[in-house]
Write a protein that binds this DNA or RNA. Structure first.
Lengths: 202, 202
DNA sequence: GTCTATATCATGATAGAC
DNA sequence: GTCTATCATGATATAGAC
């Protein structure tokens, strides 16, 4: 990831970093400016308000979190291959950006309903309808056990995202240090794929 | 839940509510006082600082989120019964307090490492060791497929907690309104139990 | 475009009357 | 214990020089 030389991009990078760590309310314009190596005045020159800057950052983060899944859901692939692809790409992406899910989800939960209404379009419904059709079809063919496609996708995404999101909780429950937990996460791709396939066996 | 008449408890209730919704940085002492029906001065009379008040609230919330699981892990039960019990009690509790996981996890992620060190004791490790032994034993007896107990528990907790935590995300991916999603959650207890048992079949 | 200096406002916290 | 009034701080945002 090459550091931007352009000022606006430098601001967006720093803002993304600070907002992710501290959240909207915890982030300080001062800290964003310092991180970007500029002064506060210049922040407001590029982005009128803190809200505007946040919007710009959040939009990118949200898209980053959701677009890969949607893309894979749209592809023409047998179910098992699709599941493997989701697990590999999504868990990989999240382990590279472990603060991303917490950032998006925390902020989203502050004003969930408004956001949901703004972001559900026909497109989402159509993409997902395709996945439902695939699951039903493979069940018809006897390749997998019959299952509610929504519950199935929810299971998969949960098992991918939650361990990273809830790492502190899990470590306390397990009584596990950072290193041991990290190795658990590394084994997780393989584990989830097998677990889901076992659950789907007809 | 009877409203407290005692002032300190009234403060704690209001603080819990406001902190859960807004987080530490978003919460205002002013709003907490208003919600409790008292003035700001009195807040500081009972709890010297905002930090102190937060600590008191967070402690309870964290315990609420983690103690049930630990309690069930400690019980003497066959694995399947234990799993059913975890799913039923935990999902029930979280659906009654949907903002609880987001609150605890968001705040925890702000300073994860310090917290983990403070909260891992021998006790946690011992409780969890018992669960590992149970899983291994039932695998030895051929009752279930051999599996890493840590991954198994992580799967179960993920599937319980994440859908409530990441509801906004899931609704956008599904293109689903609040009512439909709620009915999905209601079916979820049964679904998770079956899904896990299918995955564990030898 | 970039900086410094300043205006404006809201918040957490305190002091002191009752 | 409870209230009102006030302080001190630190934040966003703006104005204006360069």
């Amino acid at each position: 990831m090459a550091k931007s030389t352009n000022t606006e991009d430098k601001i967006l990078e720093s803002a993304s970093q600070v907002f992710s760590e501290k959240g909207f309310n915890g982030a300080r314009m001062r800290e964003i400016a310092d991180t970007a190596g500029i002064n506060k005045g210049l922040l407001h020159y590029y982005f009128k308000t803190k809200d505007a800057l946040f919007e710009a950052v959040f939009k990118v983060a949200f898209k980053q979190l959701i677009s890969r899944i949607q893309h894979i859901l749209e592809m023409d692939l047998p179910l098992y291959e699709k599941i493997d692809l989701i697990v590999d790409t999504y868990l990989g992406m999240i382990m590279k950006n472990p603060s991303l899910p917490n950032f998006v989800i925390s902020e989203l939960n502050k004003d969930a309903d408004r956001f949901i209404k703004r972001n559900i379009s026909k497109k989402e419904t159509q993409i997902f309808a395709k996945f439902i059709a695939l699951v039903d079809q493979e069940a018809d063919e006897g390749k997998i056990k019959r299952i509610d496609a929504r519950q199935l996708l929810m299971n998969i995404i949960s098992m991918i995202v939650f361990p990273v999101l809830g790492r502190p909780i899990m470590q306390v429950i397990f009584g596990t240090d950072n290193d041991e937990f990290k190795s658990l996460l590394l084994e997780r791709k393989q584990h989830i794929k097998e677990f889901v396939k076992d659950a789907l066996k007809p």
